[in-house]
Amino acid sequence: MGKTVRVLIAVVGIVLLINGSARATDDAWPFGPMSQYAGAVADDASVTFTRISAQTTSGTTVDVPLNIEGAGVARAEIEARTGEIEKDPSLLQQVADGWKKKHPDQPQYVKLELIRDTTQLVNGRVAGPPTPEVLATWEVRR
């Protein structure tokens, strides 16, 4: 590979990166925009956070750990599919199954709730504790 080819490859790569940052979406990875935390959030925005709350066989209520070691499902997947889960709460069954598979010795999930916490900002400050809203409920099949 000659020097000219090397320089051309570098230049084309840079052009692709700039083009992606200016026009593309995450879909174009690795040539997409570096958009993590790139959004501007208004001072009076409401910040939402989606989580899954579980009642367990030992009578406790816990937040499901949404990662591979926990229920085997990533938070991103749940957040991306919130609408689908609202329409069809049976999708939450896989969360309970995932937990059971990974942690057979621990208390199992009996009932799952998909909850959206909304925190209101006022003048860029947190105005108070989050307001929870239950989006979907699922009685776990065992």
Partner: peptide
């Protein structure tokens, strides 16, 4: 390019650094 994204995302302006993004995060 992270800087470019921060300018592009709010509509090609410089509002990101004074926004509530870190509070949100």
């Amino acid at each position: 390019l992270s800087w470019v994204a921060k300018v592009r995302s709010p509509g090609w302006n410089f509002s990101w650094p004074s926004s509530a993004i870190l509070t949100w995060a």
